[in-house]
Design a binder for these strands. Structure first.
Lengths: 186, 186
DNA sequence: ACCTGAACACCGTTCAAGT
DNA sequence: ACCTGAACACCGTTCAAGT
């Protein structure tokens, strides 16, 4: 019973348990819903217990965002590896798809609250993810760089505008068709 | 003295005074820094006084975001009116410039915290601003619509990626050159 | 009509103390 | 080494009461 996985919360796996609970709440209620006291309650520990594993609420949020960038990075790498990168379309599609599939996580990854207190772990995780993009789109001339940034900006903008429902879907068209239609533009 | 502007806080202009103080704090510390008790202190009223003018903190944030969309809208209209809209470049530039000039406000306008509690005033203000864009870029065919959304997404993505310093500036190049270079892409 | 004073529930965080 | 209990400062919000 001392090694029972379901009872392991009190025995060394509190950090993981907090992060798992936080991910669920993040997608259900957004960043504001992720409260240390709530997480402690959900995992049946005292309000002070999380401080053994995270310096602050911001540190826990950073850990979540890092997890997000790692998953994001992995997804982009899988797509980049699975086919010839003639066009950026499959990569762009995966980018937008990740945002729509993990709205809470994606918003946290790009949250300005977090970026404020200059957390190096977050920046490293973000840079690693974007390195995949840069590698695929490649090119060192200024023109190639501008073209790559242009593509990146379009994909990122599409993701956040869709996420916040600022783009109205035409009648009868679903999101996938819209993404394909936009990414097919020159 | 009863009509002295500098002493009018206590006499009917508390709403405006709170919003002005909030705008300053918003740009200085971000959304999290905008706290009702702080605003009340800054304006020398009791913690309960703001509730005569705003139902909640969220209502005050909404009012700020509405102001933001109105200023944004006005800026886009000015640019659209001041020249022939052959290309979307001047409009795109104004879009990005507004974000960089008003980072706190722009982030709040597109904050997901606010969109959560479905505030109709915010949506109306946002739609009014985007109507200017739609009008300029026009077109009712699906191809034209996709082209317009593609342009919008690129400009919006460029704004938020620059705001969050995710786009690294090449050595010796300033932001203006980068914006021009990206918007010059087909 | 608009503001104050005092209170309530809640949160992040700290710290001494327990096992 | 890791967690508990109790406390502190702070916040959003409410409500009776003041002018």
């Amino acid at each position: 019973m001392s090694t029972s996985p379901s009872l392991s919360y009190h025995h060394g796996d509190l950090r993981r348990a907090l992060l798992e609970a936080a991910l669920v709440i993040l997608e259900r209620e957004g960043e504001a819903g992720v409260q240390l006291r709530d997480l402690a309650r959900a995992v049946h520990v005292s309000p002070a217990a999380p401080y053994r594993h995270f310096d602050s609420r911001a540190a826990l949020l950073e850990a979540l965002a890092v997890i997000g960038f790692q998953r994001f990075s992995r997804k982009l790498e899988d797509v980049a590896a699975s086919g010839p990168a003639e066009t950026g379309m499959p990569l762009g599609h995966a980018y937008v798809r990740f945002a729509l599939d993990n709205p809470g996580l994606f918003r946290l990854m790009f949250s300005s609250q977090l970026r404020k207190d200059n957390r190096p772990g977050l920046r490293m995780a973000a840079d690693a993810a974007f390195a995949t993009l840069r590698h695929v789109m490649g090119g060192n001339t200024q023109g190639q760089r501008n073209a790559a940034i242009s593509q990146w900006a379009r994909v990122h903008g599409l993701a956040v505008l869709l996420l916040d429902r600022h783009i109205a879907l035409p009648d009868g068209q679903d999101v996938e068709q819209l993404i394909a239609g936009v990414l097919a533009q020159p």
